[in-house]
């Protein structure tokens, strides 16, 4: 197989990115969680400063499937009505894709997240880089791990939704 994997797998990987974006931009947290492997998966959002300096602390640290599901519960059950609503638009650009095991790929992508607070104008929330471990399961791809390393040294607001 080539370094960039076979075309069927690439199509599945791109479809996974699309499903992830569609879920978050609709505010559909259950659909977001469904992009991760059902049995075991992890999700991190970490500042590029912490990442660069080797600090483990993250903004979101979901190191098991249960944490991913608990994040969904918090956004959809606990925080409802407490935060100022905002909508997002994610833009993703695949930068690299390398097969690292049986049906597993290390995929790197650039991302930009635009945000629109209710009643406000649109601005950049942050940009960054996704560093993913993606697995092909049958005809679909799922995240084993997604690590969103965000560029903003200072975030422009508090955060409700995953990056």
């Amino acid at each position: 197989m080539s370094k960039t994997g076979n075309l069927g797998h690439l199509a599945a990987i791109d479809a996974l990115h699309t499903a992830y974006v569609a879920a978050l931009d609709k505010g559909d947290m259950a659909a977001w969680a469904a992009t991760f492997a059902a049995d075991q998966a992890s999700h991190f959002c970490i500042s590029s400063e912490n990442d660069r300096r080797g600090f483990p602390l993250a903004l979101m640290y979901d190191d098991c499937r249960g944490r991913i599901d608990d994040r969904v519960s918090f956004v959809t059950k606990v925080w409802v009505g407490t935060y100022e609503p905002y909508r997002t638009r994610h833009f993703i650009q695949r930068l690299g894709c390398e097969e690292v095991g049986a049906n597993q790929y290390r995929v790197t992508s650039g991302f930009t997240i635009m945000m629109t607070p209710e009643g406000g104008s649109t601005s950049v929330l942050t940009s960054g880089e996704y560093r993913d471990l993606i697995e092909i399961q049958g005809d679909r791809a799922v995240f084993r791990e997604r690590r969103a390393v965000y560029d903003a040294d200072v975030l422009p607001r508090y955060i409700v939704f995953p990056f």
Partner: peptide, 20 residues
């Protein structure tokens, strides 16, 4: 590390509401 990352701060399970 995992507790600090998830409970406090601008996205924390406990304190996101404070920020709002």
């Amino acid at each position: 590390i995992r507790q600090s990352s998830n409970l406090l701060g601008p996205c924390g399970m406990i304190s996101m509401e404070d920020a709002a």
